[in-house]
Design a protein around this nucleic acid. Structure first.
Lengths: 233, 233
DNA sequence: CTTCAATGTGAACAGTGTTCACTAAATGAA
DNA sequence: TTCATTTAGTGAACACTGTTCACATTGAAG
Protein backbone atom coordinates (compact mmCIF):
# COMPACT_ATOMS: atom_id res chain seq x y z
CA UNK A 1 0.00 0.00 0.00
CA UNK A 2 2.20 2.79 1.23
CA UNK A 3 5.87 2.11 0.77
CA UNK A 4 7.71 4.11 3.37
CA UNK A 5 11.18 5.46 2.78
CA UNK A 6 10.98 4.57 -0.89
CA UNK A 7 12.03 7.55 -3.01
CA UNK A 8 10.45 5.97 -6.10
CA UNK A 9 6.67 6.38 -6.53
CA UNK A 10 7.70 9.86 -7.40
CA UNK A 11 5.44 12.08 -9.47
CA UNK A 12 2.62 13.52 -7.36
CA UNK A 13 2.90 11.08 -4.57
CA UNK A 14 5.75 13.21 -3.21
CA UNK A 15 3.59 16.25 -2.71
CA UNK A 16 1.20 14.19 -0.67
CA UNK A 17 4.03 12.92 1.47
CA UNK A 18 5.32 16.45 1.85
CA UNK A 19 2.11 17.93 3.22
CA UNK A 20 1.63 14.80 5.29
CA UNK A 21 4.93 15.26 7.01
CA UNK A 22 4.21 18.98 7.25
CA UNK A 23 1.14 18.11 9.28
CA UNK A 24 3.10 15.67 11.40
CA UNK A 25 5.90 18.17 11.94
CA UNK A 26 3.50 20.87 13.05
CA UNK A 27 1.75 18.40 15.31
CA UNK A 28 5.05 17.27 16.76
CA UNK A 29 6.09 20.87 17.36
CA UNK A 30 2.88 21.83 19.11
CA UNK A 31 2.51 18.60 21.05
CA UNK A 32 6.06 18.72 22.36
CA UNK A 33 5.49 22.17 23.74
CA UNK A 34 1.90 22.11 24.94
CA UNK A 35 0.75 18.52 24.89
CA UNK A 36 -2.63 17.29 23.81
CA UNK A 37 -4.29 20.34 25.35
CA UNK A 38 -2.78 22.73 22.84
CA UNK A 39 -3.16 20.47 19.84
CA UNK A 40 -6.37 21.14 17.97
CA UNK A 41 -7.12 20.29 14.38
CA UNK A 42 -8.00 23.88 13.63
CA UNK A 43 -4.76 25.20 15.04
CA UNK A 44 -2.83 22.55 13.16
CA UNK A 45 -4.59 23.52 9.95
CA UNK A 46 -3.85 27.18 10.53
CA UNK A 47 -0.21 26.42 11.23
CA UNK A 48 0.26 24.74 7.84
CA UNK A 49 -2.12 27.10 5.99
CA UNK A 50 -4.71 24.55 5.15
CA UNK A 51 -8.36 24.03 5.91
CA UNK A 52 -9.22 21.96 8.96
CA UNK A 53 -11.04 19.50 6.75
CA UNK A 54 -7.92 18.98 4.66
CA UNK A 55 -6.21 17.15 7.49
CA UNK A 56 -8.82 14.44 7.28
CA UNK A 57 -7.56 13.58 3.81
CA UNK A 58 -4.33 12.47 5.48
CA UNK A 59 -5.45 11.15 8.85
CA UNK A 60 -8.67 9.43 9.65
CA UNK A 61 -8.98 11.14 12.99
CA UNK A 62 -7.09 13.18 15.51
CA UNK A 63 -6.43 10.06 17.50
CA UNK A 64 -4.84 8.42 14.47
CA UNK A 65 -2.54 11.37 14.08
CA UNK A 66 -1.63 11.32 17.74
CA UNK A 67 -0.98 7.61 17.62
CA UNK A 68 1.56 8.21 14.88
CA UNK A 69 3.30 10.81 17.04
CA UNK A 70 3.45 8.46 19.99
CA UNK A 71 4.58 5.55 17.87
CA UNK A 72 7.44 7.45 16.32
CA UNK A 73 8.46 8.72 19.72
CA UNK A 74 8.44 5.24 21.12
CA UNK A 75 10.53 4.12 18.17
CA UNK A 76 13.11 6.78 19.01
CA UNK A 77 13.03 5.75 22.65
CA UNK A 78 13.45 2.11 21.78
CA UNK A 79 16.32 2.65 19.35
CA UNK A 80 18.07 4.87 21.86
CA UNK A 81 17.95 2.19 24.51
CA UNK A 82 18.87 -0.45 21.96
CA UNK A 83 21.95 1.51 20.97
CA UNK A 84 22.94 1.76 24.63
CA UNK A 85 22.41 -1.97 25.05
CA UNK A 86 24.75 -2.83 22.18
CA UNK A 87 27.71 -0.91 23.59
CA UNK A 88 30.95 -2.69 24.46
CA UNK A 89 30.86 -1.29 27.99
CA UNK A 90 31.12 -3.67 30.92
CA UNK A 91 27.82 -5.17 31.93
CA UNK A 92 26.77 -2.99 34.83
CA UNK A 93 27.76 0.21 33.05
CA UNK A 94 25.76 -0.92 30.05
CA UNK A 95 22.69 -1.61 32.14
CA UNK A 96 23.03 1.78 33.76
CA UNK A 97 23.38 3.41 30.35
CA UNK A 98 20.16 1.80 29.16
CA UNK A 99 18.37 2.97 32.24
CA UNK A 100 19.73 6.49 31.99
CA UNK A 101 18.96 6.78 28.28
CA UNK A 102 15.45 5.51 28.80
CA UNK A 103 14.54 7.98 31.51
CA UNK A 104 16.46 10.74 29.80
CA UNK A 105 14.56 10.51 26.52
CA UNK A 106 11.31 9.97 28.39
CA UNK A 107 11.53 13.18 30.38
CA UNK A 108 12.91 15.09 27.41
CA UNK A 109 9.49 14.71 25.81
CA UNK A 110 7.20 14.39 28.80
CA UNK A 111 3.94 14.70 26.90
CA UNK A 112 4.96 12.03 24.44
CA UNK A 113 6.03 9.58 27.08
CA UNK A 114 3.00 10.06 29.29
CA UNK A 115 0.60 9.87 26.37
CA UNK A 116 2.30 6.82 24.89
CA UNK A 117 1.26 4.81 27.90
CA UNK A 118 -2.03 6.45 28.76
CA UNK A 119 -3.63 5.33 25.52
CA UNK A 120 -5.32 2.10 26.53
CA UNK A 121 -6.43 3.01 30.04
CA UNK A 122 -9.84 1.57 29.38
CA UNK A 123 -10.61 -1.06 32.01
CA UNK A 124 -13.58 -2.19 29.97
CA UNK A 125 -11.20 -3.69 27.40
CA UNK A 126 -11.28 -7.18 28.79
CA UNK A 127 -8.57 -9.32 27.23
CA UNK A 128 -8.72 -13.06 27.26
CA UNK A 129 -4.96 -13.03 27.32
CA UNK A 130 -4.26 -16.02 25.15
CA UNK A 131 -2.99 -14.75 21.87
CA UNK A 132 -1.93 -11.14 22.41
CA UNK A 133 1.68 -11.93 23.17
CA UNK A 134 2.55 -12.45 19.53
CA UNK A 135 1.02 -9.07 18.76
CA UNK A 136 2.81 -7.44 21.64
CA UNK A 137 6.17 -8.79 20.56
CA UNK A 138 5.93 -6.89 17.28
CA UNK A 139 5.10 -3.61 18.96
CA UNK A 140 7.81 -1.14 19.79
CA UNK A 141 6.84 -1.62 23.39
CA UNK A 142 7.35 -5.30 22.95
CA UNK A 143 10.74 -4.85 21.36
CA UNK A 144 11.82 -2.51 24.12
CA UNK A 145 10.70 -5.13 26.58
CA UNK A 146 12.76 -7.78 24.84
CA UNK A 147 15.84 -5.62 25.19
CA UNK A 148 15.39 -5.65 28.94
CA UNK A 149 14.77 -9.38 28.92
CA UNK A 150 18.02 -9.81 27.00
CA UNK A 151 19.94 -7.77 29.55
CA UNK A 152 18.57 -9.81 32.42
CA UNK A 153 19.48 -13.02 30.61
CA UNK A 154 22.99 -11.78 30.00
CA UNK A 155 23.38 -10.84 33.63
CA UNK A 156 22.30 -14.32 34.62
CA UNK A 157 24.69 -15.98 32.20
CA UNK A 158 27.56 -13.78 33.34
CA UNK A 159 26.77 -14.86 36.85
CA UNK A 160 26.08 -11.47 38.38
CA UNK A 161 22.28 -11.86 38.42
CA UNK A 162 20.34 -14.39 40.39
CA UNK A 163 19.39 -17.23 38.06
CA UNK A 164 16.29 -18.13 40.00
CA UNK A 165 14.45 -15.19 38.48
CA UNK A 166 12.41 -15.65 35.36
CA UNK A 167 13.97 -13.18 32.93
CA UNK A 168 10.59 -12.06 31.63
CA UNK A 169 9.13 -11.42 35.04
CA UNK A 170 12.29 -9.70 36.22
CA UNK A 171 12.37 -7.58 33.08
CA UNK A 172 8.79 -6.55 33.60
CA UNK A 173 9.56 -5.61 37.16
CA UNK A 174 12.58 -3.66 36.01
CA UNK A 175 10.61 -1.88 33.35
CA UNK A 176 7.90 -0.98 35.83
CA UNK A 177 10.50 0.68 38.02
CA UNK A 178 11.98 2.64 35.13
CA UNK A 179 8.50 3.59 34.04
CA UNK A 180 7.67 4.74 37.52
CA UNK A 181 10.68 6.92 37.98
CA UNK A 182 10.22 8.47 34.55
CA UNK A 183 6.61 9.31 35.22
CA UNK A 184 7.33 10.55 38.70
CA UNK A 185 9.91 12.95 37.31
CA UNK A 186 7.46 14.05 34.65
CA UNK A 187 4.41 14.53 36.83
CA UNK A 188 6.02 15.66 40.06
CA UNK A 189 9.01 17.58 38.77
CA UNK A 190 9.16 19.72 41.87
CA UNK A 191 9.57 17.20 44.65
CA UNK A 192 12.20 14.77 43.36
CA UNK A 193 15.08 17.13 43.96
CA UNK A 194 14.00 18.02 47.42
CA UNK A 195 14.92 16.66 50.75
CA UNK A 196 13.70 18.08 54.01
CA UNK A 197 17.13 19.32 54.93
CA UNK A 198 18.28 21.77 52.31
CA UNK A 199 21.91 20.74 52.63
CA UNK A 200 21.13 17.17 51.71
CA UNK A 201 19.76 17.83 48.29
CA UNK A 202 20.07 15.36 45.51
CA UNK A 203 19.62 16.29 41.90
CA UNK A 204 17.82 14.32 39.27
CA UNK A 205 20.90 12.74 37.72
CA UNK A 206 22.14 11.50 41.07
CA UNK A 207 18.74 10.18 41.96
CA UNK A 208 18.61 8.25 38.71
CA UNK A 209 22.03 6.80 39.51
CA UNK A 210 20.77 5.77 42.91
CA UNK A 211 17.60 4.25 41.54
CA UNK A 212 19.49 2.33 38.87
CA UNK A 213 21.85 1.05 41.53
CA UNK A 214 18.96 -0.16 43.62
CA UNK A 215 17.43 -1.99 40.70
CA UNK A 216 20.71 -3.58 39.71
CA UNK A 217 21.37 -4.61 43.26
CA UNK A 218 17.94 -6.18 43.55
CA UNK A 219 18.76 -8.64 40.78
CA UNK A 220 22.25 -9.50 41.91
CA UNK A 221 23.06 -13.05 42.94
CA UNK A 222 23.99 -13.00 46.60
CA UNK A 223 23.13 -14.57 49.92
CA UNK A 224 20.47 -11.97 50.57
CA UNK A 225 17.41 -13.16 52.49
CA UNK A 226 15.74 -15.14 49.71
CA UNK A 227 12.71 -13.56 48.12
CA UNK A 228 9.74 -15.74 47.39
CA UNK A 229 10.04 -15.82 43.63
CA UNK A 230 6.32 -15.74 42.99
CA UNK A 231 6.18 -18.09 40.02
CA UNK A 232 5.50 -21.69 40.85
CA UNK A 233 6.98 -24.29 38.57
CA UNK B 1 -15.65 30.02 55.81
CA UNK B 2 -16.87 26.50 55.15
CA UNK B 3 -16.75 24.24 58.16
CA UNK B 4 -16.54 20.68 56.92
CA UNK B 5 -18.03 17.78 58.82
CA UNK B 6 -19.80 20.13 61.20
CA UNK B 7 -23.45 19.11 61.61
CA UNK B 8 -24.28 22.54 63.05
CA UNK B 9 -24.78 25.41 60.57
CA UNK B 10 -28.00 23.61 59.93
CA UNK B 11 -30.94 25.46 58.44
CA UNK B 12 -30.52 25.85 54.68
CA UNK B 13 -26.85 25.17 54.60
CA UNK B 14 -27.68 21.47 54.66
CA UNK B 15 -29.58 21.58 51.42
CA UNK B 16 -26.58 23.14 49.76
CA UNK B 17 -24.34 20.41 51.10
CA UNK B 18 -26.80 17.80 49.95
CA UNK B 19 -26.86 18.87 46.31
CA UNK B 20 -23.13 19.44 46.46
CA UNK B 21 -22.47 15.88 47.48
CA UNK B 22 -25.06 14.77 44.95
CA UNK B 23 -22.95 16.37 42.27
CA UNK B 24 -19.81 14.79 43.66
CA UNK B 25 -21.46 11.39 43.93
CA UNK B 26 -22.64 11.50 40.34
CA UNK B 27 -19.22 12.66 39.23
CA UNK B 28 -17.55 9.87 41.19
CA UNK B 29 -19.92 7.31 39.70
CA UNK B 30 -19.35 8.42 36.12
CA UNK B 31 -15.64 9.01 36.49
CA UNK B 32 -15.01 5.61 38.05
CA UNK B 33 -16.66 3.91 35.14
CA UNK B 34 -15.69 6.01 32.15
CA UNK B 35 -12.96 8.36 33.25
CA UNK B 36 -12.63 11.96 32.25
CA UNK B 37 -13.82 11.18 28.73
CA UNK B 38 -17.34 10.36 29.88
CA UNK B 39 -17.59 13.11 32.43
CA UNK B 40 -19.20 16.23 30.99
CA UNK B 41 -20.89 19.01 32.90
CA UNK B 42 -24.03 18.60 30.86
CA UNK B 43 -24.25 14.89 31.55
CA UNK B 44 -23.58 15.49 35.21
CA UNK B 45 -26.33 18.09 35.31
CA UNK B 46 -28.73 15.76 33.59
CA UNK B 47 -27.88 12.98 36.02
CA UNK B 48 -28.85 15.06 39.02
CA UNK B 49 -31.75 16.84 37.25
CA UNK B 50 -30.27 20.29 37.31
CA UNK B 51 -29.22 22.83 34.78
CA UNK B 52 -25.60 22.72 33.60
CA UNK B 53 -25.11 26.24 34.86
CA UNK B 54 -26.25 25.20 38.32
CA UNK B 55 -23.08 23.20 38.86
CA UNK B 56 -21.07 26.37 38.66
CA UNK B 57 -22.78 27.58 41.82
CA UNK B 58 -20.99 24.77 43.63
CA UNK B 59 -17.73 24.38 41.73
CA UNK B 60 -15.74 27.08 40.04
CA UNK B 61 -14.82 24.87 37.13
CA UNK B 62 -14.79 21.31 35.95
CA UNK B 63 -11.16 21.05 36.91
CA UNK B 64 -11.98 22.11 40.46
CA UNK B 65 -14.58 19.37 40.68
CA UNK B 66 -12.15 16.82 39.30
CA UNK B 67 -9.48 17.93 41.72
CA UNK B 68 -11.83 17.18 44.57
CA UNK B 69 -12.44 13.70 43.21
CA UNK B 70 -8.73 13.03 42.89
CA UNK B 71 -7.97 14.46 46.30
CA UNK B 72 -10.55 12.33 48.06
CA UNK B 73 -9.30 9.29 46.20
CA UNK B 74 -5.76 10.00 47.23
CA UNK B 75 -6.92 10.41 50.79
CA UNK B 76 -8.48 6.94 50.67
CA UNK B 77 -5.32 5.53 49.15
CA UNK B 78 -3.18 7.18 51.77
CA UNK B 79 -5.27 6.06 54.71
CA UNK B 80 -5.38 2.52 53.36
CA UNK B 81 -1.61 2.34 53.19
CA UNK B 82 -1.34 4.04 56.54
CA UNK B 83 -3.58 1.42 58.11
CA UNK B 84 -1.41 -1.30 56.64
CA UNK B 85 1.70 0.39 57.96
CA UNK B 86 0.37 0.45 61.52
CA UNK B 87 -0.27 -3.28 61.70
CA UNK B 88 1.49 -5.47 64.26
CA UNK B 89 2.75 -7.78 61.56
CA UNK B 90 6.47 -8.50 61.34
CA UNK B 91 8.40 -5.94 59.38
CA UNK B 92 8.70 -7.54 55.98
CA UNK B 93 5.08 -8.67 55.95
CA UNK B 94 4.04 -5.15 56.88
CA UNK B 95 6.07 -3.63 54.05
CA UNK B 96 4.56 -6.11 51.63
CA UNK B 97 1.08 -5.28 52.91
CA UNK B 98 1.64 -1.59 52.30
CA UNK B 99 2.86 -2.30 48.81
CA UNK B 100 -0.01 -4.63 48.04
CA UNK B 101 -2.63 -2.26 49.41
CA UNK B 102 -1.20 0.64 47.48
CA UNK B 103 -1.24 -1.09 44.12
CA UNK B 104 -4.53 -2.78 44.89
CA UNK B 105 -6.42 0.43 45.58
CA UNK B 106 -4.66 2.13 42.69
CA UNK B 107 -5.78 -0.38 40.08
CA UNK B 108 -9.22 -0.67 41.65
CA UNK B 109 -9.84 2.91 40.48
CA UNK B 110 -7.55 3.20 37.49
CA UNK B 111 -8.91 6.52 36.24
CA UNK B 112 -8.54 8.11 39.62
CA UNK B 113 -5.01 6.94 40.14
CA UNK B 114 -3.80 7.87 36.69
CA UNK B 115 -5.47 11.26 36.81
CA UNK B 116 -4.22 12.00 40.31
CA UNK B 117 -0.68 12.06 38.99
CA UNK B 118 -1.23 13.42 35.52
CA UNK B 119 -2.45 16.74 36.84
CA UNK B 120 0.72 18.80 36.82
CA UNK B 121 2.36 17.43 33.70
CA UNK B 122 3.16 20.93 32.58
CA UNK B 123 6.90 21.25 32.01
CA UNK B 124 6.49 25.00 31.74
CA UNK B 125 5.87 25.14 35.49
CA UNK B 126 9.41 25.93 36.41
CA UNK B 127 9.97 25.57 40.14
CA UNK B 128 12.84 27.16 41.92
CA UNK B 129 12.70 24.26 44.34
CA UNK B 130 13.56 26.08 47.50
CA UNK B 131 10.43 26.32 49.55
CA UNK B 132 7.97 23.84 48.13
CA UNK B 133 8.89 21.03 50.48
CA UNK B 134 6.87 22.45 53.33
CA UNK B 135 3.87 22.65 51.00
CA UNK B 136 4.43 19.14 49.77
CA UNK B 137 4.59 17.71 53.26
CA UNK B 138 1.03 18.84 53.93
CA UNK B 139 -0.32 17.25 50.78
CA UNK B 140 -1.78 13.77 50.84
CA UNK B 141 0.99 12.81 48.45
CA UNK B 142 3.46 14.18 50.92
CA UNK B 143 1.93 12.27 53.80
CA UNK B 144 1.94 9.06 51.79
CA UNK B 145 5.57 9.70 51.06
CA UNK B 146 6.34 10.13 54.72
CA UNK B 147 4.81 6.75 55.46
CA UNK B 148 7.31 5.15 53.11
CA UNK B 149 10.13 7.16 54.64
CA UNK B 150 9.05 5.88 58.06
CA UNK B 151 9.12 2.29 56.85
CA UNK B 152 12.59 2.67 55.42
CA UNK B 153 13.79 4.23 58.68
CA UNK B 154 12.31 1.39 60.68
CA UNK B 155 13.99 -1.16 58.47
CA UNK B 156 17.29 0.54 58.99
CA UNK B 157 16.84 0.67 62.76
CA UNK B 158 15.82 -2.98 62.86
CA UNK B 159 18.97 -3.75 60.97
CA UNK B 160 17.44 -5.40 57.93
CA UNK B 161 17.93 -2.42 55.62
CA UNK B 162 21.20 -0.94 54.56
CA UNK B 163 21.86 2.14 56.68
CA UNK B 164 23.94 3.84 54.02
CA UNK B 165 20.80 4.83 52.16
CA UNK B 166 19.19 8.15 52.76
CA UNK B 167 15.67 7.24 53.85
CA UNK B 168 14.12 9.99 51.77
CA UNK B 169 15.93 9.06 48.60
CA UNK B 170 15.28 5.38 49.15
CA UNK B 171 11.62 6.08 49.84
CA UNK B 172 11.35 8.09 46.68
CA UNK B 173 12.92 5.26 44.73
CA UNK B 174 10.56 2.81 46.35
CA UNK B 175 7.57 4.93 45.61
CA UNK B 176 8.62 5.32 42.01
CA UNK B 177 8.70 1.56 41.66
CA UNK B 178 5.27 1.15 43.20
CA UNK B 179 3.98 3.93 41.03
CA UNK B 180 5.44 2.29 37.97
CA UNK B 181 3.97 -1.11 38.56
CA UNK B 182 0.58 0.38 39.36
CA UNK B 183 0.52 2.42 36.17
CA UNK B 184 1.85 -0.44 34.10
CA UNK B 185 -0.97 -2.64 35.32
CA UNK B 186 -3.45 0.13 34.62
CA UNK B 187 -2.26 1.11 31.18
CA UNK B 188 -1.06 -2.24 29.86
CA UNK B 189 -3.49 -4.60 31.54
CA UNK B 190 -3.07 -7.21 28.85
CA UNK B 191 0.65 -7.92 28.85
CA UNK B 192 1.53 -8.25 32.54
CA UNK B 193 0.03 -11.69 32.87
CA UNK B 194 1.66 -13.02 29.78
CA UNK B 195 4.88 -14.84 29.22
CA UNK B 196 6.00 -16.17 25.88
CA UNK B 197 5.53 -19.75 26.98
CA UNK B 198 1.92 -20.25 27.91
CA UNK B 199 2.75 -22.73 30.66
CA UNK B 200 4.86 -20.19 32.50
CA UNK B 201 2.16 -17.68 33.17
CA UNK B 202 2.18 -15.48 36.19
CA UNK B 203 -0.87 -13.68 37.42
CA UNK B 204 -1.03 -10.16 38.71
CA UNK B 205 -0.99 -11.06 42.40
CA UNK B 206 2.08 -13.21 41.99
CA UNK B 207 3.80 -10.56 39.96
CA UNK B 208 3.13 -8.03 42.68
CA UNK B 209 4.61 -10.41 45.22
CA UNK B 210 7.67 -10.79 43.06
CA UNK B 211 8.03 -7.07 42.52
CA UNK B 212 7.65 -6.32 46.21
CA UNK B 213 10.27 -8.96 46.95
CA UNK B 214 12.66 -7.36 44.54
CA UNK B 215 12.19 -3.95 46.09
CA UNK B 216 12.60 -5.27 49.59
CA UNK B 217 15.70 -7.16 48.60
CA UNK B 218 17.20 -4.10 47.01
CA UNK B 219 17.19 -2.29 50.33
CA UNK B 220 18.42 -5.14 52.45
CA UNK B 221 21.74 -4.83 54.25
CA UNK B 222 24.12 -7.38 52.79
CA UNK B 223 27.54 -7.79 51.22
CA UNK B 224 26.14 -7.15 47.75
CA UNK B 225 28.40 -5.25 45.34
CA UNK B 226 28.08 -1.78 46.85
CA UNK B 227 25.98 0.73 44.94
CA UNK B 228 27.27 4.23 44.56
CA UNK B 229 24.87 5.98 46.86
CA UNK B 230 24.61 9.10 44.72
CA UNK B 231 24.39 11.68 47.46
CA UNK B 232 27.63 13.27 48.46
CA UNK B 233 27.91 14.48 52.02
C1' DC C 1 -9.99 16.06 -24.84
C1' DT C 2 -12.30 13.69 -21.69
C1' DT C 3 -12.94 10.95 -17.63
C1' DC C 4 -12.04 10.10 -12.96
C1' DA C 5 -10.08 10.03 -8.79
C1' DA C 6 -7.73 12.80 -5.57
C1' DT C 7 -7.10 17.40 -3.04
C1' DG C 8 -8.80 21.19 -0.79
C1' DT C 9 -12.70 24.07 0.92
C1' DG C 10 -16.66 26.46 3.52
C1' DA C 11 -20.48 25.45 5.93
C1' DA C 12 -22.64 22.92 9.00
C1' DC C 13 -23.57 19.41 13.04
C1' DA C 14 -23.11 17.86 17.53
C1' DG C 15 -20.65 18.24 21.33
C1' DT C 16 -17.79 20.64 24.95
C1' DG C 17 -16.77 24.25 29.20
C1' DT C 18 -18.26 28.58 30.70
C1' DT C 19 -20.70 33.12 31.32
C1' DC C 20 -24.51 36.16 32.01
C1' DA C 21 -28.75 38.45 32.42
C1' DC C 22 -32.63 36.94 34.54
C1' DT C 23 -36.38 34.76 37.60
C1' DA C 24 -37.77 32.80 41.86
C1' DA C 25 -37.19 31.63 46.33
C1' DA C 26 -35.43 31.90 50.81
C1' DT C 27 -33.36 34.72 54.37
C1' DG C 28 -32.76 38.69 57.67
C1' DA C 29 -34.26 43.20 59.38
C1' DA C 30 -37.65 46.79 60.30
C1' DT D 1 -46.04 41.77 58.11
C1' DT D 2 -43.27 44.08 54.59
C1' DC D 3 -39.27 45.30 52.44
C1' DA D 4 -34.50 44.43 50.97
C1' DT D 5 -30.84 41.48 49.93
C1' DT D 6 -28.67 37.56 49.16
C1' DT D 7 -28.93 33.03 47.09
C1' DA D 8 -30.28 28.93 43.92
C1' DG D 9 -31.43 27.85 39.57
C1' DT D 10 -32.31 28.69 34.62
C1' DG D 11 -32.13 29.31 29.37
C1' DA D 12 -29.69 31.34 26.00
C1' DA D 13 -25.66 32.44 24.23
C1' DC D 14 -20.31 32.44 23.26
C1' DA D 15 -16.25 30.36 21.87
C1' DC D 16 -14.39 26.41 21.36
C1' DT D 17 -13.75 21.33 19.92
C1' DG D 18 -13.65 16.97 16.35
C1' DT D 19 -15.87 15.57 12.30
C1' DT D 20 -18.68 15.26 7.99
C1' DC D 21 -20.40 16.48 3.52
C1' DA D 22 -21.61 18.54 -0.69
C1' DC D 23 -19.06 21.08 -3.65
C1' DA D 24 -15.12 23.28 -6.50
C1' DT D 25 -10.67 22.60 -8.33
C1' DT D 26 -6.82 20.33 -9.72
C1' DG D 27 -3.80 16.62 -11.79
C1' DA D 28 -3.00 12.53 -14.06
C1' DA D 29 -4.57 8.58 -17.28
C1' DG D 30 -6.93 6.74 -21.19
Amino acid sequence: MDSDTLPEESPAERRRQRVRTAILDAAERVFSKEGEAGLSIRRLAEEIDYSPAAIYKYFGSKEELLDELKESFFERLMSTVDRAALTTLPFEARVRQCFAKYVETAIARPYHYAAAFASAADPSAGMNGTDCWEDFEKTHKGQAFMIVVGLVREGQEIGVFDTSFDPYVAAKSLWASMHGVALLLIHLPDFPGLLPLPDRRIDTANFLQFHAGLLFRSLCASPVPPVCSGHDE
